[in-house]
Write a protein that binds this DNA or RNA. Structure first.
Ligand code: MN
Ligand code: MN
Ligand code: ZN
Ligand code: ZN
Lengths: 132, 132
DNA sequence: AAGTAGTTTAGAACGATTTTAAAGTAAAAA
DNA sequence: TTTTTACTTTAAAATCGTTCTAAACTACTT
């Protein structure tokens, strides 16, 4: 399926701007990035786009499930092109995130989900620190 | 150990403002809160404090390990008085966090820590959603 | 082609957090 | 104790990521 079809399937009009972003993000390579990172990539590709549009698109892409947003205590939003359930190593010093594929982690025992709720995804974060 | 001793042990001068915050946060009750939540509690306790001081103190307390900061994709920082390694349920709709004690989760299989790094803490996040 | 609903944009606005710099306070030195 | 020093608090300004506004533009429908 090409990017135009992916956008259509997600219920998004394939505008010029969304196609530029889709061409960068939906190439099958997993990456973690900020809005500013993406703007730099857009500029490097010879295009340009308003930062408002970049935020609009990222929000739409996220809400459609084309990308995810990472839980992060940094003050800049971090997005993830890996939409499968997976886990992360985090170097807290640098903020670097490294994917851990789902099958690399085995959760043997999980607590009971609170009454009236259902499990909506489990994420494991392994904080790592450079050895001295 | 009283709060003055806790601050001293952490290498922090026990100023009037830090003692007010310590009296609220270090009472042994586990809570998740924002800087604004804390300012409201300070006000309710009959005191007042500059928001800059609140941020200064929270950063110091966090860096000393007296409190933790939660990984959260919300744009307001969330702090946690539970400094033991533990896990969370997260209701993404409301942002509500519920503690899961460490022994409630059993990680059977963990991936190899990247070369040159050491494990610095594992956090499990279970996203939950209200049932319809 | 005309209509309409959705999209992009520059720039303004917003909200959380940090910085500034001056005044105040705690600890150390004398 | 007094003096000195380094650290802390504060209001206000600044910063920074993100969202809003409203006008121009574009994709889709009829
Ligand atoms: Mn955050
Ligand atoms: Mn922000
Ligand atoms: Zn990832
Ligand atoms: Zn907690």
């Amino acid at each position: 399926m090409n990017n135009k079809e992916k956008l259509r399937k997600a219920g998004l009009r394939p505008t010029k701007q969304r196609m530029i972003i889709a061409d960068i993000l939906l190439d099958g390579i997993n990456r973690h990035f900020t809005a500013e990172n993406l703007q730099n990539e857009i500029n490097s590709s010879g295009n340009s786009m308003s930062i408002a549009t970049i935020y609009n698109c990222l929000k739409k892409f996220r809400n459609c499930g084309l990308i995810k947003q990472v839980e992060s205590s940094k003050d800049t939003a971090i997005f993830d092109t890996n939409i499968n359930q997976h886990h992360h190593f985090l170097d807290e010093e640098t903020g670097e995130l490294i994917d851990i594929e789902n099958q690399e982690v085995n959760l043997h025992k999980l607590p009971k989900i609170p009454q009236g709720y259902r499990n909506n995804g489990v994420e494991v974060l392994i904080k790592i620190k450079k050895q001295i």
